[in-house]
Nucleic acid binder design. Structure first.
Length: 911
RNA sequence: GCCGUCUUAGCUCAGUGGUAGAGCACUCGCUUCACACGCGAUAGGCCACAAGUUCGAAUCUUGUAGACGGCACCA
């Protein structure tokens, strides 16, 4: 069989995914082993508004690599896909569409129609990202795809809400919340980011004291809020204001009189020591207001314009216009003391970057104290365990420690409408259905709460709602047929690992831990792999506004899916990385290397024996007692086994980059550069045993690469002679042939062969030294020379056994293997750890070049020797260091001494 | 303000209490019958700086400088 000369990713990516999916390879049901252990991952559901970006590609690669790796080992594997309804994002898309197409506002069409259109939007555009995941090769079980607003997931949301309400963990209350005036909804603390403004202002306002000619100066960054002031506070022990406590302020621009109160919260050292108190627009002021029973005067509308309470001069003005006007009026009144420049950080809406306004509002909250304690208890036992552990384990625990209540209502139409109903008097009835609520209300007319729940409320249930938990009983016999018996919940929860970005550890990971524990009394997942951020070429996070984004799909087109995947997997776990195409080129080249190595093997493999059974194959047991093995064979099998062992260990500990590096160097350096070259003659001459063996090694290597490079490895593996389902893991013996169900090599310690590795090291060292002589002496490859080698008897044996290979790779004509060198003066010389080498070069040698070459070698060895001599003459070291270490260094010291001595003699012999 | 991370070859990054690694770039060779997306051979680093612990520190501790992240506060 002959392959194309270069690997074409597109051709390989074309059909395999469809075949895998249609054959049901992704579903756990493919596993026929009743005793199989499960392995499960739920995907962090991407937003339906999302398009695949590098962060997804990275996370999906890692999840897929783990899933494929476990699946090949015979685990009952499920990677569950799904999407999130993404409340605000979808709402915004639909609002935009409505405006663009029909010049209408949501209010014009009403809630019902709006929600209908949101669903239509979701149906039309919401599966962009799931289609893109197919391109990635993600081996998710599409038959179990979930959406956070699926009927059963929505039932779960209602049930959870009602239960938490009944138990007093959910409450409705008037609090200062983060209000986004653009989205016109409340946000949780986690959805508020900050922006540092250097050109902020601190404005000092003078408030006249009633029945006095004094004024009290207060400072503020938001002057317009003075219209909602209901007090001025000072520290009770502040001497400057003692006599004013209890007096009254005539609040300028209003006709209101407000008290001067004393409160410990006020820092006498800061600013003027007097603070304006606006209980409806500041969390601290709210607290003070509560303590002093102050009125709460709300002066803004939900779009951050001033309302009637701000007075007729200000009503209807935008907050920033009002701010300027307040300052202007104070100036006119002579009550503006000064305006200082003041660096300030402003809270902004995570999504639309609008400045968030703290306002007093009636909202729904989840009380976090018991949930927090539950999660903390687990966190102290390192559940879940984060990789990398530093810093996430600690950050997560600390965050939990300081957790505040969670604002869960949102003033949107798209989402899970809150299952609470009100009667005409405002009494609330929380129930699973409207009927139930009406029953509770004694049949009164009810109106449902118009708010929806925070998107993260439903994603917080993702770890169990996706497995069929709806909160209704019983779970078994659920109408949804995609929930299999025994129930997925029993089978797949706890999930094994969650792979996610650090930005949603609090928003999502923590809430899944808490809610899963609370409602299913299970741990949601044992491990959390936290991925780093793929940064743009400029070292900053990729973003549309910066224009530094890299589209994974473009990379797929340019370099291939497999190259992109394995490159992403080569990034150290949790580390940020600056994007560079060169990294991708490296792995594009690697893919081509794999292709061509296979091409070479297949050109000669027509006569290779197919192997008998999967057990023998994966363990390599058929090769253990193979009498025809050369040192190179034992060596490559040892290297293969050690690589397999190390790859499994690396994946076990989520060291994906380590696994990639091991495979890269095993395949390219050991297998291609040395093994194939050493075996070339045997292979091309049609040696059946040799061909069978090399195909086996290739087979094993392809299997280990498959989790990272699914398309290439499948394409090639199916072309190997004898690749068929009998090579599958026993759990999949009945499935059609595919590498994705082949047994994953674990690395058999019986095949570790240190003797072979050390012998090969001798051969490789020898060949390299001879090549060095040729290169440094500038001798054309056309000239075949004789290589003289002096070595101990056992080493001689190794060289003799590999004579043909040494001749070929060193481009030599003859080897003279002896106990001691006997060569003409005009020879180039070198030493290895266990041999002396000389190449007679009569007429070709430049004695100065040779002298320099030898001196350079001596210099290098002497550097090392000097260090060792010093270390070994230090009695502290010899006494205190482990004897083993001392022994090892002494051995090396002797070796070096010998080599330096030999090289010096060689130089002398030149003179 | 609190907590934390990073600083290693020209570039992008691994790594480890016991002789510094990779890919790319650079230099020098190669139409070697799988691959120029290749093959071979070199060169290149007092592992940010300072002090400490240790027989031994690039690795552990502390401090300094620079880059960055999270949280809190912001009258």
């Amino acid at each position: 069989m002959e392959l194309a000369k270069a690997y074409d990713p597109k051709a390989a990516e074309e059909d395999h995914y469809k075949r895998w999916e249609e054959n049901g390879f992704f579903a756990p049901e493919i596993n026929q082993d009743p005793k199989a252990v499960k392995f499960s991952i739920v995907i962090p559901p991407p937003n339906v508004t999302g398009r695949l970006h590098m962060g997804h590609a990275l996370q999906h690669t890692l999840m897929d690599a783990l899933t494929r790796w476990k699946r090949m080992q015979g685990f009952r594997t499920l990677w569950l896909p799904g999407t999130d309804h993404a409340g605000i994002s979808v709402q915004r898309k639909v609002v935009e569409q409505l405006k663009k197409d029909e010049h209408k506002k949501p209010a014009d069409i009403g809630r019902e129609e709006f929600v209908r259109r949101a669903w239509a939007w979701k149906e039309q555009y919401g599966n962009t990202i799931t289609e893109q995941m197919r391109r990635e090769g993600a081996s998710v079980d599409w038959s179990r795809h979930r959406f956070t607003m699926d009927p059963d997931l929505s039932r779960a949301v209602r049930n959870v809400f009602c239960t938490l309400y009944d138990e007093g963990w959910i409450y409705r209350g008037l609090r200062i919340v983060n209000w986004c005036p653009k989205d016109r909804t409340v946000l949780s603390d986690l959805e508020v980011k900050e922006e540092t403004k250097k050109d902020g202002k601190l404005t000092y306002l003078k408030y006249p004291v009633k029945d006095s000619d004094r004024t009290v100066t207060v400072a503020t960054t938001r002057p317009e809020t003075m219209l909602g002031d209901t007090a001025v506070a000072v520290n009770p022990s502040d001497a400057r204001y003692q006599d004013l406590i209890g007096k009254t302020i005539l609040l300028p621009l209003t006709d209101r009189e407000i008290p001067i109160i004393a409160d410990e919260y006020v820092d006498a050292e800061f600013g003027t020591g007097a603070v304006k108190i606006t209980p409806a627009h500041d969390p601290n002021d709210y607290q003070i207001g509560q303590r002093h029973d102050l009125p709460q005067l709300l002066i803004m509308n939900d779009d951050a314009t001033m309302n009637a309470a701000a007075g007729p001069d200000f009503e209807g003005l935008d907050r920033f216009v009002a701010r300027a006007k307040v300052v202007e009026r104070f100036t006119e009144l002579g009550l503006l003391e000064k305006v200082d420049d003041y660096g300030i950080t402003l809270p902004i809406c995570e999504r639309c970057k609008t400045i968030v306004e703290p306002i007093l509002s009636d909202q729904w909250f989840v009380k976090m104290d018991e949930m927090r304690d539950m999660a903390l208890e687990l966190a102290r036992e390192k559940v879940p365990h984060f990789s990398p552990e530093v810093p996430h384990q600690k950050v997560y625990t600390t965050w939990l420690d300081n957790l505040k209540d969670w604002t869960i209502s949102r003033q949107l139409w798209w989402g899970h409408q809150i299952p609470a109903w009100y009667d005409a008097d405002g009494n609330v009835f929380v129930a699973r259905t409207e009927e139930e609520a009406r029953e509770k209300a004694g049949g009164r007319e009810l109106t449902q709460d118009s708010d929806v729940l925070d998107t993260w409320f439903s994603s917080g249930l993702w770890a169990f709602s996706t497995f069929g938990w709806s909160g209704d009983t019983p779970v078994r016999g659920d109408a949804d047929k995609s929930v299999r018996a025994p129930s997925d919940l029993d089978t797949f929860l706890p999930t094994d690992v969650l792979v996610t970005g650090r930005d949603i550890i609090f928003l999502w990971v923590s809430r899944m831990m808490m809610l899963t524990k609370k409602f299913v009394n299970k741990v949601a997942f044992d491990d959390v792999v936290v991925t780093g951020t793929v940064l743009g070429k400029d070292g900053k996070p990729m973003s549309k506004t910066r224009g530094n984004g890299v589209d994974p799909l473009e990379m797929f087109d340019k370099f291939g899916v497999d190259a992109t995947r394995i490159y992403l997997a080569s990034i150290a776990t949790g580390a940020d990385i600056k994007w560079n195409d060169i990294g991708l080129e490296t792995y594009r080249n690697f893919a081509n290397k794999i292709w061509n190595a296979t091409r070479f093997c297949l050109m000669n493999a027509d006569n290779s024996d197919v192997y008998a059974s999967s057990d023998e194959v994966a363990g390599g047991s058929q090769f253990i007692a193979d009498a025809e093995q050369t040192i190179a064979d034992r060596w490559i099998i040892s290297r293969l086994s050690k690589t397999a062992f190390a790859v499994n260990k690396a994946l076990d500990t989520y060291q994906f980059h380590e696994a990639v590096s091991l495979l890269y160097h095993f395949f390219w350096d050991d297998f291609c550069d040395w093994y194939i070259e050493l075996k070339k003659d045997q292979i091309t001459s049609g040696d059946v045993a040799a061909n069978t063996r090399i195909v086996w090694i290739l087979d094993m290597a392809l299997r280990m690469l498959h989790p990272f490079m699914p398309y290439l490895t499948e394409e090639l593996w199916l072309k190997l002679p004898g690749s068929s389902s009998h090579l599958h893991n026993v759990a999949y013996s009945e499935a059609p042939a595919t590498i994705m169900l082949a047994d994953f090599p674990l690395g058999d310690a019986k095949l570790f062969d240190d003797a072979a590795e050390s012998e090969m090291a001798s051969v490789i060292d020898l060949i390299k030294k001879v090549r060095n002589i040729r290169a440094e002496m500038n001798i054309s490859t056309a000239i075949k020379f004789t290589v003289h080698i002096a070595a101990a008897a056992d080493v001689q044996e190794v060289f003799r056994a590999n004579e043909a290979q040494i001749l070929k790779l060193a481009k030599a004509e003859r080897l003279v293997i002896t106990d001691a060198l006997d060569v003409p003066r005009a020879s180039a010389k070198a030493v290895t750890n266990d041999a002396e080498i000389a190449v007679p070069l009569e007429g070709l040698i430049d004695f100065d070049v040779e002298r320099t070459r030898l001196c350079n070698q001596i210099a290098k060895l002497t550097d090392e020797k000097t260090r060792l001599d010093g270390q070994l003459s230090n009695s502290n070291f010899v006494d205190k260091a482990p004897a083993e270490k001392v022994q090892e260094l002494r051995g090396r010291q002797e070796e070096l001494a010998d080599q330096v001595e030999t090289l010096q003699k060689n130089i002398e012999s030149l003179n």
